[in-house]
Amino acid sequence: MLPLPSQPVRPLRHWKTLPAEQAAALIGSGSTVAVSWLGDSLPGALQDAFRHQRTPRDLTVVYGTAQGHGRTHGLNLLAEEGLVRRVIGGQWHPVPGLHALAVANRIEAYSLPVGVINRLFRDIAAGVTGHLSRSGIGTFADPRHGGGRLNPATREDLVRVVHAAGQEALLFRTFPIDVALVGVGFLEGTAEMVMTRDAMTMARAARKSGGLVIAQINRVGTLRKLPIGQVAVADTLVDVLVTTDGHDRAGDVFATAPAPRTIGWPQRA
């Protein structure tokens, strides 16, 4: 557990601080939701809203990496048929709940290289219509080998083969991000917001798309110095801050938990 702040911090000024239930209500049906980090509070609130009110519905969930939460935590709380319509993921083994829906052909499911997904967020933030890469040629991401589609329910092509400078390349189509869900911490004594570089890029992609950035505190206490791989960002990058009681499960805490039982990969289309 990180130390609590030893001195007062300046007021939070550029975002709304909301409980998870109210933050979840801001996510509309049909939204494309990009996820860089997710505890239990926010997805739990989405799950409850869907079960009791049948809304939001038909979400598209996009993520590069997913930390190990176990079967009933984090992204797995979104594994409700009807709540999620499509998943575009870089890693599927940490999300057995969504994986099971893909195996059962109940959601559209894509598996794309993690690096490509992270660069897609960068290109969305830059306003580029597609990401051009030679990464994935001849693999499952190549449209001649399925284009990353994992089951028969997944029909739309997100990847095209093109020729650039006399060489074959893959063009991964970009898309608007309606909501970005990111984890944040704060530097002690300043309340300066800290997040990973990938989370910052994802948040900027949502900003470029005219979307919403919802941040959830993923650390207990404040940080004395900037952690490796994280950056300080402007307050204005976040619209809503979801606070927790300190008992919300954090992805990195449970990354060493035993791997879930294998339930079989869906067949790529």
Rank of each mutant, 00 (worst) to 15 (best):
P3L: 12
L4E: 14
V9L: 07
H14M: 10
W15T: 09
P19G: 03
Q22M: 12
A24E: 00
L26G: 00
G28I: 08
V35C: 10
W37F: 08
L42C: 06
L42F: 08
P43A: 12
Q47R: 15
Q47D: 11
D48T: 15
A49C: 13
A49M: 15
F50C: 12
R51W: 07
T55H: 11
V61S: 07
V62S: 08
Y63G: 05
Q67N: 10
G70V: 09
E80K: 11
V84A: 08
V87Y: 03
V87T: 12
G89E: 06
Q91D: 13
H93G: 04
G97Q: 08
A104C: 09
A104V: 09
R106Y: 10
I107H: 02
S111E: 14
I117F: 05
L120R: 01
L120N: 00
D123Q: 04
A125Q: 07
A126E: 12
A126H: 03
G127H: 03
H131G: 00
L132R: 02
G146N: 05
R149V: 05
R149K: 15
N151W: 03
T154G: 01
E156F: 04
D157G: 04
L158P: 00
F172C: 02
V179L: 12
V179S: 07
L181H: 05
V184K: 00
E188R: 04
V194Y: 03
T196L: 04
T201H: 10
V213R: 04
I214S: 03
I214T: 06
I217G: 00
T222N: 02
V231A: 15
L237A: 11
L237G: 10
L241W: 01
V242C: 03
T244Q: 04
D245E: 07
G251A: 14
G251V: 06
D252C: 07
F254Q: 11
A257E: 13
A259Q: 13
R261N: 09
I263W: 07
P266D: 09
P266N: 02
Q267R: 05
